[in-house]
Structures are given as C-alpha cells and as structure tokens.
Amino acid sequence: MNLIKLRTWGLLLSLLLAGRTGFAQDDAIGKFFGKYVDDDRFTVVSISPKMFRLMSKIRWDSVSSDLKETVGKLQSLRILSTSATPMTFYKEALEKIDRKEYEELITVRSKQDNVHFMVKESGNTIHELLMISVGDDGFTLVSFVGDIDLDKLARLSADMGIKGMENLKDVKRK
C-alpha cells in the first residue's frame, strides 16, 4: 500500500514538474534575447502583452482591417538588431533554435541579405513567427508571439502597396 502511495506521489510530482516546464518561457530565443538585452551593441524593442492590451484601447483610425485583426491577435513582439559582427550573431541564433520546436517556413536569399522565417505551431495555429535576417548592414531577429494568420500577414504589404527592402532598413534604424 505504501509503495502504491509512493508511486502515486512520484507520478504527481513528475506531472507537476512537467506542467511547470511546459509553461516555462526559457526557450532558446528567450535566452538569446535575455543574453543581449543589455548589450550596447544591440537595439532592442520589446512590446509586452500588457502593452498590446493598452493598444487595443487607442483609436485605430486609418488602419486596415487585416492589420487591426493581426495586431489584435498578437501577444508580444521582440526585436533585436545589431550592425556589429552580424554573421556571428546570425549563426549563434540559428544554432540556438530548437528545430523540433520551430519549423522552417521560408528562406529568402537575396544579394542584400538572407531572411529565415520560422514558425512554432500546434495543430493548425501558428503561435510564434520568427524572422531572422542577416546582411552586410546587420543582423535582426524579430519574434511575433500570438495567434498568427500568415494569409493576413502576407496581404498587409499588398494592402499598403509596399514593395522592396526600404522598410526593413527603417526598422533597423529605429
């Protein structure tokens, strides 16, 4: 009987630990952000779920419905960029990504830079979109967390009539 009780408690404890680990945020990308957040070489942008909730309370004039819906379903945004030794940080980020968690969506190689899109999904829902780019002018890592609809995301630039690379550079300078 004691053995059964011991087994039951052991099982409960392992499940408890598993539950805690399952919700832990110490993923590789999180650690990567944590490592360089105070590094002067990096420009860091972090927008929390709280800020996303505050955003929903402001006026949304001149915002397309796709953009509104896309932003409405986001929970957090993190951007990390640097112009110092971009290739080193790019390699480090790619090495740290757990390929079991993140699935490669698309890779765009151009003369200016390489961009990797990776997604973390469960079922048919994408919970995180990771964009990692590297070029002569720098390295940028962007992580969108939330309920992400790639169709809507792809339509955004078409709605705004935006083409080309200029916008990426603008973001990096921010």
Binding site: L67, V71, R78, I79, M131, V142
Partner: peptide, 30 residues
C-alpha cells in the same frame, strides 16, 4: 523575458503600435 527581465520599450501605446505595424509590414514584404 526568459532568462532576463526586459522592460517594455515604449510607454505610449501609439508609439508601440507604430513599431508593431512597421515590423508586421516588414515581415509581410519579406
């Protein structure tokens, strides 16, 4: 943040929205 406490970069939701919008557009373009 995982492994380190990261502060919200913006305190003004309008500014935060502008950055989110820009980041989404960049992702969309790429």
């Amino acid at each position: 943040a995982p492994a380190a406490a990261v502060k919200d970069t913006y305190t003004d939701p309008n500014k935060a929205l502008a950055v989110v919008r820009r980041a989404l557009l960049v992702a969309s373009v790429r």
